[in-house]
Computed example of a mutant assay.
Amino acid sequence: MTDFTPGDIVEIETDSGKAYVQVTHNHSSYPPVVRALDGLHESRPDDLEGLATGATRFVGMIPLGSALQKLGRTCEVVAHVDVPEDQKPFPTFRMPIRDKKGEIVYWWFWDGRGLSYDVELTEEQKALPLREVMSGERFLELLVNHET
């Protein structure tokens, strides 16, 4: 198992090219939080720091090393770059709470410390990542899909 540090840029081999994520946070009870950096690349970009200051495609929690290893994918820490200011606060994750019929009754919001809730999602809350530990399969799917 690889230990990752916030700021690490991790290169991931996919069938569509090299993808890059930045580890943004570690939490004592969950796997690392990562942000997927924009684009798929034929070769490693010269300016990884520039890539890290660019757009975030999605944010998720994943046991990165072990999840990719189970899929036979390689990953490697290729740089360490400061986490951008707008990504430094621990992200808020959303989680639906359902009734016995499977209907969403309300939403929990978790900021790494505590929970809050709301009955209806605002447009801003709809963009929050789900509070889930991603599978390697789902993670790779999101990495190679341009419409996250």
Rank of each mutant, 00 (worst) to 15 (best):
F4P: 00
F4A: 03
F4W: 03
F4R: 04
F4D: 00
P6R: 05
G7C: 13
G7T: 07
V10A: 12
V10E: 03
E11G: 02
I12R: 03
D15P: 03
A19Q: 15
V21G: 04
V23Y: 00
S28Q: 09
S28F: 11
P31D: 10
P31K: 07
P31W: 02
P32M: 06
R35Q: 07
R35M: 08
R35D: 03
A36T: 07
D38E: 15
H41L: 06
E42H: 10
E42N: 04
S43R: 13
S43W: 04
E49L: 04
G50K: 10
L51F: 07
L51R: 11
A55I: 02
T56A: 11
R57G: 03
G60W: 00
P63H: 13
L64Y: 10
A67D: 02
L68Y: 04
K70D: 12
L71W: 05
L71G: 01
G72E: 00
R73W: 00
T74E: 15
T74C: 04
E76T: 15
V77A: 11
V77F: 02
H80L: 01
H80M: 09
V81C: 09
V83K: 05
Q87R: 14
Q87N: 08
K88N: 06
P89A: 12
P91K: 08
T92Q: 08
R98Y: 05
D99P: 03
K101V: 08
E103N: 12
I104H: 03
I104C: 14
V105I: 10
V105Q: 14
V105T: 15
Y106R: 15
W110E: 01
W110A: 00
G114K: 15
G114A: 15
L115M: 11
L115R: 09
D118G: 14
E120F: 05
E120C: 02
T122R: 02
E124G: 03
E124Y: 05
E124F: 00
Q125H: 14
K126Q: 15
A127P: 01
A127Q: 13
P129Y: 09
E132R: 14
V133A: 07
S135V: 11
F139L: 03
F139C: 08
L140F: 02
E141V: 06
L143R: 13
H146S: 11
E147M: 14
T148I: 13
